[in-house]
Simulated scan of single mutants.
Amino acid sequence: MSAIPSKAELRSAALAKREKLSEKQRNAAANALAKRGLPFAITEGLIISGYSPIRNEIDPLPLMEKLAKQGARLALPTVTARGKSLIFRSYNVGDRLTLGMLGIPEPSPAAAEMLPDIMLVPLAAFDAAGHRIGYGAGHYDYTFAHLRRHKPIIGVGLAFAAQEIASVPALSHDVPLDYVLTEKRVFDFRSG
């Protein structure tokens, strides 16, 4: 009988699968997400935070462009410190970004702070119950916990289908997502 894999082991295995995807497969997946859009209505002025893709994450920018054309206002996260909530700053497609403290492109500190209604979230792995494995710093778990004290926020994970795993060993502080979108399907965890 084998031991249950740790989050670190599951993360490594899922990231290895993601690394094997070709540039063509990555682009096709990002475009498939954009073509499908979000699985719920977008109202004028809705604030949607995306992310700047790193480490071969699925690129949310084609989807974000579509959402902006539908009337959404966009934001990108800014990392402040481990164990602290992310800050979201206004972003328009094509804005010049600066490298943040973790080397991730972020809006200028002069960009207006915004409180998102919907957060598009990168991930290393996810399961069919809506749990995700990130990179281990807990930025999104802290952020969801903090911001949901102020208003309801829909969490939408974006991933390649290859990143789905059988089960995430979720802990009490892990915040499940409302949806995960892959190039192949929409996982809706709110109806279950």
Rank of each mutant, 00 (worst) to 15 (best):
L123D: 04
Y179T: 00
I58C: 14
G50K: 00
T182N: 13
A8S: 14
I165E: 00
E164G: 02
A124Q: 06
A8M: 11
K69I: 01
A14D: 15
R149P: 03
S108I: 08
L15W: 03
M64S: 04
A125D: 12
S49W: 00
P152Y: 01
A13C: 08
A128Q: 15
A125C: 13
G94M: 07
A81F: 02
I42A: 05
N27L: 05
L67H: 13
L63N: 09
G138R: 02
I87A: 11
A166Y: 03
A30E: 04
G50R: 04
L21E: 04
A145Q: 15
M101Y: 10
L67E: 11
L67Q: 13
I47D: 11
A112T: 05
V79S: 01
R96V: 15
A110I: 10
P152S: 08
R36C: 03
A137Q: 14
F187T: 00
R149Q: 13
L120R: 09
E23R: 13
D188W: 06
D178L: 10
F88S: 15
L86P: 08
A68L: 00
H146I: 01
V156H: 01
P53A: 11
L46Y: 09
F160L: 10
S85Q: 06
S108V: 15
A81Y: 07
R149T: 14
L38M: 08
G138D: 08
I104F: 12
K84I: 00
A145K: 14
N56P: 01
T143M: 00
A110T: 14
A128C: 15
A170K: 14
A32W: 04
